[in-house]
Every structure is written in C-alpha cells, then in structure tokens.
Design a protein around this nucleic acid. Structure first.
Lengths: 263, 263
DNA sequence: CGTTGTGTTGAGCCGAATCAACCCCGGTGG
DNA sequence: CCACCGGGGTTGATTCGGCTCAACACAACG
C-alpha cells in the first residue's frame, strides 16, 4: 500500500527482483537458476491486507515467496491478544515443508497488500539437485530465519522498549537492504504502530512514545511509511548488537552477572 | 543433582528409558529400533552444571540425546543478561543438523549435572531408511520443539508473570510425563529461581513472589526439587491454553481486540 | 461531510524491577 | 565441634517502565 507508492516504481516492471537479490545475497546463483526464479512470476497471487496466507492448525502448506508487500507469522490468543513472531518481507519464503508440516503452530497473515508466487518449482529443482545454488540459498535462508527468531526472543524477554525498537528497526533495515528495497539508512516501513506493538510485545501507546523519543533524539525519522535511520551506529549501541566492523564494545549498563562455568 | 536423589532410582538401571518412552510417545517404534536406541547407552558422557554442550558461534554439531539432567538453549548478552530459549529435558535431542548448522545462534548449557549419549547412529539409521519409526519420531520431535518455541514466545511477549509461570509449569509437566519422569501432577524441577527467571524474562524476586502466590492459592506445591500441580485445570485456565478435552472456554480478561479479516 | 483508522498526547495506575536485608542449609576448615 | 561461608530462597520498601483510559488531531475515503 504505502510502500508501493514510493518504492515499487523504482523496481523492475516485473517485481520479482527482491527474490533474486535476496538469493544472490545468500549464495552464488547461476544464470539458469536465475531464469528459473524469474519464471516463477508467471503465476502470482494477490492478497488483501488481513488475509490469511496460512491458517493456524491447517495442514496444507503451499510453499510461496513474497514478492511485494509485508506479511507476518503470528498467533492470536483466545482473548484477542496477538503475538507476531516474525515479519515476512519481499524475498522471504514461507510454507516450506520440512518443518512444522501438519498443524502449523501459527498463521501467516498479510499485513499490507501482498503479492506471492509459487515456490514449488524452485524447491523441486533444489531437492533434485538441479539447482545447487538455490539449494544452498534455501538452507541459508532457513538458518537466517531461525537466527532472527532467536533475536526476537531476546528482544521480548530481555530488552527494554527503547532497545527493542532500535534493535527491530536495525533488523528491518538490514533485511530490506539485501533485497534492494532499502539502502543503508532508508527503507519502507508500511506498518501501523499496532503491528509494531504486537510484534514487540508492547502497547500501541508505548510504541508511539518510544518512536517519539528516538525522533526527538535525532536517531530516526519516520515519514509517510518510510523510515530513516539517522544514526545507525548509535542505534546499534542502544540495541546492544554487534555491527559488521565492531568497534570496541563499551561496558553497557550491567544488570545481573552470571557466574561462569563452575565445573 | 537434586532430581537424581528422588527420581533416578525408580528408573531402569541403565537410564536410557526416557529416550525410549519419548520416542514411543511420538511414533510407533519397532523392536529392532528400540534395540538400536538402547545400544546408544554404550558411550555416554557426563557434564557438570554450567558446562557448555554446544557453544554459540561454534560450527561443530554433535547430535546427542539427553538421558539425565536438564540443559538449556540460551544466549548471553554482552552486559550479562541471559535469555533461555528452551529447556532440554531427558529424552530430548540437540545438535541435530539440518537447521542452524554453522554458527549456532545460541549455546546449550547444562543446568544440572547432565548425561548425554551420541545420537549419530540413530540419525544415520533414520536417514538411510533403516528405521522409519525413528525417522518419524525425529521429525515429530523437531515439530514439537518448534511449537514449544512459539509457545514460549507468546509467554514472553503477551503474558503476565502469573500466566507465564502457570503456563511454563504445565509445559514441563506434560513434557516430563511423556518420558515417565513425572505423572499427571508431580514432576522433578531441579531449577533455581534464577534459571526460571531467565527463561521467563522476569526478575528472580518476581518469580519468587509469583510462585508464592500460586502456593498460597493452593494451585501448586514446591518441595525439595519436586513440583506438584494441585489444580492442573485451574492452571490451564490461568495460562489460557487448551487442554486435551477442552472445557467450554470462558471469557478471559479481554485486553485489545483486533478487527478480524478485513478483506 | 461524516466516518473510520491511525497517530499523538496527558493523567493516573499497576506490574514488575531494583535495592537491601535476612534466613536457611550444606559444606568446609580450624 | 563449631565458626565461617556461600548459594539459594524469602521478604519489605521503593522506584520506574510500561499499561490503561481518554481525549483529540489528522488524513483518506465514501
């Protein structure tokens, strides 16, 4: 929705670029493999915001790639509370078998208008050994998904609202840069504060205030669905995460120290 | 440690029972397959509390089963905060490849004295098709692990301390019952309140107070490393989770209602 | 031009963290 | 034998981060 207004027009006429860029960032992809990927664009599907792409408890699993728009893996509790486990961005896949086959322990829901393509041909080629580069990319993607999941758990369990938001924005920047949808600072952010709140385990109001604070401190800017990280390094320090060329890490506000290996 | 005092003596002389019971609860296991499992006990290893079974960032992954003692999958932040992602109980495996191969995004650390056995022979037999029952059990175990991970994320992101503790105790009861280490109410709980705190994303003091409250309300009992769930159904209601034969679910304290499918 | 969804802001409250004792127990060494 | 010590559990007092409630601004839209 919002993001298409500003970012989509820059992209290729057939917006499958994010998948190609993502796969290339994960592995070496041959010409033939890239052609296979581009051929997926033949049958794509549109999904309205709020639509279930995979419903919790359902067993059918169509492996698909998101080519445009954002989705989320989530669970809704009986009383209406919702936890978003991960965001699924253009270039990400979902419904790949192998894990969580029969009754999925979560739903996948379109957060914005979403376009997906069938990933089955790609998967087949990978498992049959016809596309080793894509096979490597698939396992690399699965591993990154897993890492992101644990990162998110650390956010939920250990970090303050301020740290969570900084950490999360950095994650989105890095993931979107891989797919060419953002650069080292700017990226589309087509989410309501309610969605951010449900992802980060905070209330809407407090997400709002935290974003306000980050803006007041000139660390970020948010305008019409675009986020700008004005001080990525400062955000990384707040988030407590390693950056590629890690500077010497200063002592952070110590809380509770574990006794190391007793043995 | 504590648990061996009370529970281990009941078990078989060669304590590999938990693995067998667990696998049987996940799938149908043939005589030959069970014999294979029992043969794993040949070379087992002892680990002292605090010892790393897998170190974060390491690539070597020895697939192993825990036969006695408790371990945890965790990450420690640079400032000393720790998040425990999941507990690994007797009968659980870890280090199975396929996921998170090279730099593991977490460590696995012994919480108590732990005994493990090599799972490689079992894995080989499964992938080579020589043990279809074990293969099914392995994928079922992986799926259950995944489900538990998402359950834990809901706890961290959405539930109050009271709900988290109730939910977590119920999870432990159910998992330990599968392995024959606990019954429908009692089970060994050889964890310090600090470990519970780091798992549940709470402070030690608040875990203590929450447990006190559950005891005052006669819902649980804790004595010398053994937990007793006096009112499992009441705990399930608090935790907001489905029980096997689900009673009609009463309206829980509503917090925030999402608009359902807009499309 | 109302309506609806989203963002913003203030006031007040509450759940959970922090700080600081203190107890109990098992181990250890004089 | 007992004094000491350290780890884990318990408790009270206090602080604070984040939630709730409520109102309002603003833009998109029918």
């Amino acid at each position: 929705m919002r993001m298409t207004g500003r970012f989509a027009p820059r992209l290729a006429t057939w917006p499958i670029e994010p998948i190609v860029k993502r796969l290339r960032s994960l592995s070496v992809v041959s010409e033939a493999e890239e052609a296979l990927v581009r051929s997926l664009a033949e049958h794509r599907e549109r999904h309205a915001p709020g639509e279930d792409l995979i419903t919790e408890g359902q067993s059918q699993r169509k492996p698909r790639y998101v080519v445009a728009g954002w989705a989320a893996r989530q669970r809704v509790l009986p009383d209406g509370r919702r936890q978003i486990f991960s965001l699924i961005l253009p270039g990400d896949n979902f419904g790949i078998a192998g894990r969580g086959a029969p009754p999925a322990p979560w739903s996948i829901v379109a957060m914005t208008a979403v376009e997906t393509v069938d990933a089955a041909p790609l998967l087949e080629a990978a498992v049959e050994g016809r596309a080793p580069g894509l096979a490597r990319a698939l396992t690399a993607a699965a591993m990154e998904d897993e890492r992101l999941l644990f990162d998110h758990m650390v956010r939920l369990g250990q970090q303050t609202a301020y740290e969570r938001v900084a950490h999360f924005l950095l994650e989105l920047q890095r993931r979107l840069q891989c797919t060419g949808l953002g650069d080292s600072q700017r990226f589309p952010l087509p989410l309501t504060q309610e969605i951010l709140a449900d992802a980060l385990g905070l209330s809407i109001v407090h997400v709002n205030r935290t974003l306000q604070q980050l803006r007041r401190e000139r660390l970020i800017e948010l305008r019409s669905g675009v986020a700008i990280l004005l001080e990525p390094q400062a955000l990384a320090d707040i988030a407590g995460c390693e950056v590629e060329a890690a500077r010497p890490r200063s002592a952070a506000p110590t809380r509770r120290q574990l006794e190391a290996s007793p043995a």
